[in-house]
Measured scan of single mutants.
Amino acid sequence: MASQGTKRSYEQMETDGERQNATEIRASVGKMIGGIGRFYIQMCTELKLSDYEGRLIQNSLTIERMVLSAFDERRNKYLEEHPSAGKDPKKTGGPIYRRVNGKWMRELILYDKEEIRRIWRQANNGDDATAGLTHMMIWHSNLNDATYQRTRALVRTGMDPRMCSLMQGSTLPRRSGAAGAAVKGVGTMVMELVRMIKRGINDRNFWRGENGRKTRIAYERMCNILKGKFQTAAQKAMMDQVRESRNPGNAEFEDLTFLARSALILRGSVAHKSCLPACVYGPAVASGYDFEREGYSLVGIDPFRLLQNSQVYSLIRPNENPAHKSQLVWMACHSAAFEDLRVLSFIKGTKVLPRGKLSTRGVQIASNENMETMESSTLELRSRYWAIRTRSGGNTNQQRASAGQISIQPTFSVQRNLPFDRTTIMAAFNGNTEGRTSDMRTEIIRMMESARPEDVSFQGRGVFELSDEKAASPIVPSFDMSNEGSYFFGDNAEEYDN
């Protein structure tokens, strides 16, 4: 783990906690998980779902989305002020799938948001429990990260689609708070800032007046979040320049895209947490497990152990491969979309394939898809080993990566060399080191050039047997250095459309 220093740990961010010791953190995270579980059980009762239907990941996603929508204050306010045809701002819903006479049927349900809020609060001892809501947002974000390569979004903001390893959390809503900021990748933060800068260039009043003052505060806050992700002084200094700019424009845009590229080699610290679907927490609570009393951590053995003992089902389209669908969801559960496939294969105990080789589309089923041909199958979400999630980018030494994705962002704290394609990355730096950030740029390029592919990161860190909950005997895996390590390699994943 990167030293926490003055930073709060993510469990504290996750639970809005002030400084807590490890036991208190485990208890408050457990409380959050228990609340999600209780809410899910109650919703299944309301909807009269069978046990099997309640364990269907598509039903879980609909129920999670309903509660997130019920608590989305800004959108609710907007919907009330701008009524649109056929949208009731006070209601929320989605597809629920039921097994009827041996076939899967889709039923569109509609609930009062007020009623959903009441059920959620009741499951969370009367609190709004925003930490639990954020947790579900991060699960949705991790699922998107594993399912889609955001080529269009990258290109629109002047970045290269091969930089997708920097895009963790790119679909997280803005209201996801400190826990959300911690899991956002460098590219995601750059993209958010670039969008602001572009608006400022096109709209003279963007930075002016009372609204402009708020915009400015948001801009500086985002700059500080991004600065905190960088691990070298030169990158941090460049972020200070971007933040202090009187009138952010093209120079800042250039600096930010430069920094994003540099992060492929001088990786930023991005938190990883295993956020599971509500249909995993519900049955665990129903079986009598007391998360608050037992304590829970999002970055240790607990999620692995929970998945070892969970039964989750998914709808499967006619030509999809259930094992591939399982891999997709497994990666999402562990926030591992940008991790090295060699490491993932070792931990999972079966070969993890790149996205383009998977015969599976996303987990969600569109409303126009034919239910007649839908089957369902068990998702295999178990693992051979477990490993500690990392909050750091690993040290800054790398190795060759593949054509589709030119770097990785480690999820697990496991000893290995970190793949990246130096030639491709360095070719993108057209040696432009003039301007006010020239000395920093020169320094950053120097550090990137001296990074050695064969150097090892996370020295001495290994994986653990599932029986080793105290992480007492690390097993340090050895990897084939020459092997392909990137998930979005030469990829044809669908595009994420909101």
Rank of each mutant, 00 (worst) to 15 (best):
R461H: 04
E115S: 00
R389Q: 05
I36K: 09
Q168D: 01
I119T: 15
P453S: 12
G30R: 09
A123P: 05
R461A: 00
Q168R: 06
R26S: 08
E369A: 10
K351I: 14
A251F: 11
N21Y: 06
T157R: 01
R416A: 01
L418R: 00
N59S: 12
G180W: 08
Q241A: 05
S467T: 08
S176D: 03
R267N: 06
G86R: 05
G212I: 07
Q149A: 12
F71C: 09
S3Q: 00
S467W: 05
K48E: 07
H272P: 08
S274M: 06
A181E: 03
C164L: 01
A263D: 02
A2V: 15
N144K: 08
F488V: 05
L266G: 08
A178G: 14
I201E: 04
R261V: 06
A387I: 00
S3K: 03
P419R: 01
A131W: 09
D128G: 05
M191F: 04
A323M: 13
W120P: 01
A286R: 10
S473Y: 13
Y219P: 01
Y148L: 02
A70E: 08
D290A: 12
I316C: 15
T396V: 11
E484H: 03
D72A: 14
I96A: 08
L47G: 01
S297V: 03
S9R: 00
L47Y: 01
E495S: 09
E80M: 01
M66L: 14
N368E: 05
A251M: 05
D421S: 05
M136N: 10
D480C: 05
W120C: 12
T378F: 00
R19N: 09
F304P: 03
F206K: 07
K77E: 08
W104Q: 04
V270K: 13
S478F: 11
P303V: 13
T433G: 12
T130Y: 03
T130P: 15
E18I: 14
R98W: 13
E254W: 02
G169R: 05
R117T: 14
R305W: 11
V343C: 10
T6C: 06
Y313A: 02
A237F: 02
D72W: 06
A251E: 03
T437L: 09
P453C: 08
D203C: 03
D240L: 05
S467E: 09
R98I: 13
F71W: 05
S262M: 12
G228Y: 01
L307V: 13
P477E: 03
F253H: 11
N224R: 00
R204H: 02
A22T: 12
F458T: 00
R441P: 10
S478E: 01
K273F: 05
I365D: 03
E53T: 01
I347G: 03
R65G: 13
T92E: 07
K184F: 03
R446E: 07
V329H: 00
K273A: 02
I365F: 11
A493V: 12
G404C: 15
Q42C: 04
D160I: 01
N319R: 14
R389P: 02
D421A: 14
H334W: 03
Q308A: 13
E375K: 11
M136L: 13
I201Y: 14
E369F: 11
Q399M: 09
R400D: 03
M167A: 08
Q459R: 08
R216K: 12
A332D: 03
F479V: 07
T130Q: 15
M13T: 15
H272Q: 13
Q241N: 05
L328H: 01
N492M: 05
T45I: 12
N432Q: 09
G249V: 11
T23V: 13
S413N: 11
N492R: 07
E46K: 12
E115V: 08
G490Y: 02
D160V: 07
K77D: 09
S60K: 04
G300Q: 02
A179I: 01
T6P: 02
E469R: 04
A233T: 15
G93W: 09
R267F: 05
T390R: 02
T232W: 08
R174M: 11
I96L: 15
M426F: 06
S274H: 03
V285L: 15
E24K: 04
R19D: 02
V414H: 02
R213E: 04
L47W: 06
Q122N: 01
L328S: 09
Q4T: 11
I217M: 14
I301H: 15
K87Q: 09
R75I: 11
R55C: 10
E443T: 09
N76I: 14
S377H: 04
R150F: 04
T442Y: 01
D127K: 13
G86Y: 14
P318I: 14
R382C: 01
V280T: 15
I25W: 02
A22W: 12
G34C: 14
M374D: 05
I217V: 12
T257Y: 10
N247F: 01
T151R: 08
L143R: 02
D468W: 05
N492V: 01
A263E: 10
D340A: 07
I425V: 14
I96Q: 00
T390N: 13
D340S: 15
E24H: 02
T360H: 05
S287Q: 13
F39L: 07
V299M: 05
I445A: 09
L344E: 05
N430I: 08
T15H: 14
G462V: 09
R8S: 00
K351W: 09
L154T: 01
V476Y: 00
L381P: 10
N309T: 11
L381S: 09
M371E: 11
Q405A: 14
K273S: 03
Y385L: 11
K236I: 12
A403T: 15
I425M: 09
R216E: 10
L344P: 04
D455S: 14
M137G: 04
R174K: 13
G126M: 12
I444G: 04
I197V: 14
M136S: 07
T130F: 01
G17M: 05
S297K: 01
I444A: 09
N319G: 13
F230T: 02
Q327V: 12
F488H: 05
I425W: 04
V285I: 13
S407H: 03
Q42S: 06
A218H: 07
V312G: 03
T437F: 03
R156P: 05
L466H: 11
Q58M: 10
L466G: 00
N370V: 01
K77G: 06
D88L: 04
Q459N: 05
S297L: 03
A451F: 03
T424P: 04
D468P: 06
F291A: 13
A332W: 00
P95S: 12
T257V: 15
Y313F: 13
R74W: 12
Q399E: 05
M371N: 15
I138S: 05
G209I: 08
I225A: 03
E320P: 00
T350H: 05
L256E: 10
T373S: 04
R389Y: 02
N211Y: 13
K470V: 06
G126E: 10
P95L: 09
E372G: 12
R19V: 14
M32A: 07
P477C: 04
Y296D: 08
D203L: 05
R416N: 02
S486N: 08
E449M: 10
M159Q: 08
R355P: 00
H82A: 14
R317T: 09
P303Q: 13
D302S: 12
V242R: 02
D421K: 08
E210I: 06
N59M: 05
N498G: 12
E18N: 06
S377T: 14
G228Q: 02
Y111F: 12
D439Y: 10
Y487T: 02
I265K: 10
K87S: 03
L315D: 01
G177L: 02
R98K: 13
S335T: 11
I475Y: 12
V186A: 08
T423Q: 15
I475V: 10
N142D: 11
P283A: 08
Y10R: 01
N321D: 08
S345W: 03
R26I: 09
S84R: 12
E11N: 05
P173T: 11
T92P: 07
S467I: 11
G126D: 13
Y40I: 04
L418Q: 07
R118C: 01
I138T: 09
V414L: 14
A271E: 00
G209W: 03
V67G: 12
P419L: 15
I316M: 14
H140F: 13
M13A: 06
S28G: 14
E11S: 03
Y219I: 07
P474I: 02
V285W: 09
V29A: 08
R389I: 00
S176Y: 11
D468F: 06
N202T: 04
N492W: 04
R26C: 02
R19K: 02
A22R: 07
M426W: 01
I138K: 04
D145Q: 03
